[in-house]
């Protein structure tokens, strides 16, 4: 018995390292393509450029961060407000769609989910530009819009916050629908029968059973929409106006037009930190750990 135990022990010790072996490609990938770039970004954000076309020198220059907050607070706030509204709209529009496909799709399910992904076959840029044609001032959409009592004859959709938020919602909608669909798909719909059996109206059954069980999908979808939306610049570029500029626009300009890498890096890091903080709060608030079924 004693000898056996030792052998088992050794086997155990050996296998203790095995998981790290399997993890190593992932860890290497993470280090190379996440940690190292973030490190470089962090270093750049604390650097100063001696002059415009010289390389930044690392000198613990924290002023990049004070500038980030001081000069671009409006853009940050606007980015989060726009991304937040877009996320909410994506839930409101995407959830019923995902629900319908998951519950009523039948044998068309895969086809319908395929349709949700179809827009990805066209470039994101082209799709955004396409909206400028659809929403043009001389177009039928705006003509209808102008009939609304609170919209004047010179009302417009393009170059307004509405267009930018709409573009963000549209462009990231699939990222909302897919995870929600997956979580709805997993739900045993006999649970809704059980709820009905126990006196829940159809709405009550949805509210108390289906929706809580689909929250992991809503959570994942919200992150997948909110994060890229908060850093987006293309929607503002094509559908917005100077009054709707977002932080992504500023970062893009700082990098590519002004070559102000330190400032751009500082802005990126602030964006990253704020988003991470929001995600943590959000996940705590939703308590996704307990939802694992």
């Amino acid at each position: 018995m004693a000898r056996r135990a030792t052998a088992d022990d050794r086997g155990l010790r050996k296998s203790k390292w095995a998981p790290y072996g399997f993890l190593s490609p992932g860890i290497i990938w993470l280090v190379l393509f996440f940690l190292v770039p973030v490190g470089i970004l962090l270093k750049a954000s604390l650097s100063t450029k001696p002059s415009r076309f010289e390389e930044p020198v690392f000198d613990w220059n924290f002023s990049n961060f004070s500038t980030a907050f001081g000069d671009y607070g409006t853009e940050f706030v606007r980015s989060f407000v726009f991304a937040g509204i877009a996320t909410l709209l994506a839930i409101l529009i995407g959830y019923p769609l995902a629900y319908w496909i998951a519950t009523r799709g039948g044998r068309w399910k895969n086809f319908l989910i395929g349709l949700v992904v179809v827009p990805f076959f066209t470039s994101y840029l082209i799709r955004t530009i396409a909206w400028t044609s659809i929403l043009q001032d001389d177009g039928p959409v705006v003509a209808l819009y102008r009939l609304l009592p609170w919209v004047g004859a010179d009302g417009r959709i393009l170059a307004t916050p509405m267009a930018v938020i709409g573009g963000l919602t549209y462009n990231f909608m699939s990222f909302m629908i897919l995870p929600i669909y997956v979580s709805l798909e997993k739900i045993d719909f006999r649970l809704t029968e059980a709820a009905a059996d126990l006196g829940s109206t159809p709405w009550g059954a949805f509210r108390k059973v289906v929706f809580p069980l689909s929250l992991p999908g809503v959570f994942a979808g919200s992150l997948l929409v909110f994060i890229p939306a908060a850093g987006d610049y293309l929607n503002n570029r094509y559908l917005g106006s100077p009054q709707t500029s977002m932080i992504g626009t500023v970062v893009q300009n700082k990098f590519l037009v002004q070559f102000d890498y330190p400032q751009a890096a500082a802005l990126s890091i602030v964006l990253m930190v704020i988003i991470t903080a929001m995600v943590l709060v959000y996940s705590r608030f939703l308590g996704t750990e307990g939802l694992a079924v």
Partner: peptide, 12 residues
Amino acid sequence: GLVVAPSVLAAC
């Protein structure tokens, strides 16, 4: 969008 990362790497 694609160009940002390499230019940062190159610059820093």
